[in-house]
Computed example of a mutant assay.
Amino acid sequence: MARAWEADPSALFERRLGKSAEELGNSDGNDECPDIWRLDNGDVAVIGRDLTAVYGPRLPQGVNLAPDERLVVIPGNMLSAAKKDIPDA
Rank of each mutant, 00 (worst) to 15 (best):
M1D: 14
A2E: 13
A2H: 06
W5A: 09
W5D: 08
E6H: 08
A7K: 10
P9I: 12
L12A: 11
E14W: 01
K19W: 07
S20R: 07
L24V: 10
G25R: 12
G25Q: 03
N26R: 11
S27G: 03
S27M: 03
D28K: 13
D28R: 14
D28W: 14
D28Q: 04
G29T: 01
D31G: 15
P34Q: 09
D40N: 15
D40Y: 11
D40S: 11
N41I: 05
D43S: 14
D43F: 05
A45L: 15
G48V: 02
R49A: 10
D50L: 05
D50N: 15
L51N: 08
T52L: 09
T52M: 10
V54R: 14
V54G: 03
V54S: 06
R58S: 12
L59W: 08
P60S: 07
P60V: 09
P60N: 08
G62V: 01
G62D: 15
N64P: 00
N64V: 12
L65I: 04
L65D: 02
L65K: 02
P67C: 04
E69A: 04
R70D: 01
L71M: 15
V72Q: 02
V73Q: 14
V73W: 11
V73A: 14
I74K: 03
P75G: 07
G76P: 05
G76K: 08
N77G: 08
M78A: 06
L79I: 13
A81P: 00
A81F: 10
K84V: 09
I86S: 05
D88G: 07
A89H: 04
